[in-house]
Every structure is written in structure tokens, then in C-alpha cells.
């Protein structure tokens, strides 16, 4: 231990150093998440595909074999179709996926949450969705001619109840 004055001086230097360290790393160095000339497209889908098998009306004979409490006139399989999605920018596909239904019995919704960086500027954003294994064509389509600013976030959300794709 040094003399008292030197000791206090050393302590002050330590506290100043610790405070400077805490103050600096509390905000710096700045982290650049996205380059300054890029914009982002965020795609979010949560949609249950059409059932793999059509519902079937049970015959009277079939119904009579069931317990009285389980006599539903319509029999539907649980499994849903996978949802196929295609996202293109300026005609170039940047995302294509067959989203499997969730759940052990594959009866839950198919989900997607994806982010894409694109150069800022004017782009034609097209997105298509098919939700029935029996279909060859896309049932839903969305299209936007967007002038994306640097760091702009364009959200593309699918909501079947509201008619399909929404750009926000």
C-alpha cells in the first residue's frame, strides 16, 4: 500500500477507467445490422392448408355402427395439405418452399417467417401461395410495385380471411 494520497489517486484512476469502460461499451461500437443501401422484405405466413382428403358423408349403415355419442354425419381426415409459397423479386424467385402442416397429425397450420435483404430501389414483388395438394395452380397471388427506400421494411403477410396477401 502506498501513501494515502497516491492510494486515493490510484483508486480514482481505477474508478475513472472502469466508468469509461462501462460508458463506452454501453453503446459502442455501433452495430450495423443491415447495409445502408439495402431494404428488407419480411414474409410471414400462418395458414392451414386444405384437408388432404375430402370430407365424406357417412351412410346410415356406417352411422348405426358408431356409438350414439359419436355419430357425426360428416367424416373428415385430419391431415392438411402442405402450403407452397413462391416469392419473386423482379421475376426472380428468391424463396420457394413447401411448408408442412404443423402438429403430430399434420392438422395444424403451415408457418413461415422469412427475411430477405434486397437493394433499395424500385422492385416488383410477387408472391404466390397454393394450399391444396390437388391443385397445380397457385390459389392466392399478391403483387406490389414497390419503391423501397434504404432500410425500409416491407412486410408481406398472408391472411386468407382477408383475401390473401397484404403488403405493409
Amino acid at each position: 500500500m502506498m501513501n494515502r494520497f497516491t492510494g486515493y489517486l490510484g483508486q480514482a484512476v481505477f474508478y475513472a477507467f472502469a466508468a469509461a469502460l462501462a460508458g463506452y461499451f454501453a453503446t459502442r461500437p455501433v452495430y450495423r445490422q443491415v447495409p445502408a443501401d439495402q431494404a428488407q422484405i419480411k414474409l410471414m405466413i400462418k395458414h392451414g392448408g386444405v384437408r388432404v382428403e375430402d370430407c365424406r358423408k357417412l351412410t346410415t349403415q356406417e352411422l348405426s355402427k358408431l356409438p350414439t355419442t359419436a355419430r357425426r354425419p360428416i367424416d373428415c381426415s385430419r391431415e392438411r395439405s402442405p402450403v407452397t409459397v413462391l416469392l419473386s423479386i423482379d421475376g426472380e424467385p428468391i424463396y420457394q418452399a413447401e411448408l408442412q402442416p404443423t402438429g403430430l397429425s399434420k392438422d395444424g397450420p403451415s408457418k413461415a417467417y422469412e427475411k430477405f435483404l434486397v437493394p433499395a430501389g424500385r422492385h416488383l414483388v410477387e408472391v404466390r401461395l397454393r394450399d391444396d395438394v390437388r391443385d397445380q395452380d397457385y390459389k392466392y397471388e399478391g403483387r406490389l410495385d414497390a419503391d423501397l427506400k434504404p432500410w425500409q421494411n416491407l412486410a408481406v403477410e398472408f391472411d386468407a380471411e382477408r383475401g390473401g396477401f397484404h403488403f405493409r
Partner: peptide, 22 residues
């Protein structure tokens, strides 16, 4: 939310792992 937080001053003591998570 209409923009990406492209450049942020992180508190590295708490958020140091965030660039990795991302």
C-alpha cells in the same frame, strides 16, 4: 417497424450475443 433498425448502438454487456443470435 416500417424500417429496419439498420444501425444500433448496442450495450455489449447485455446484448453482446445478439449479432450471433441474429
Amino acid at each position: 417497424l416500417a424500417e429496419v433498425p439498420g444501425s444500433v448502438g448496442l450495450d455489449w454487456f447485455y446484448l453482446g450475443a445478439y449479432p450471433l443470435l441474429e
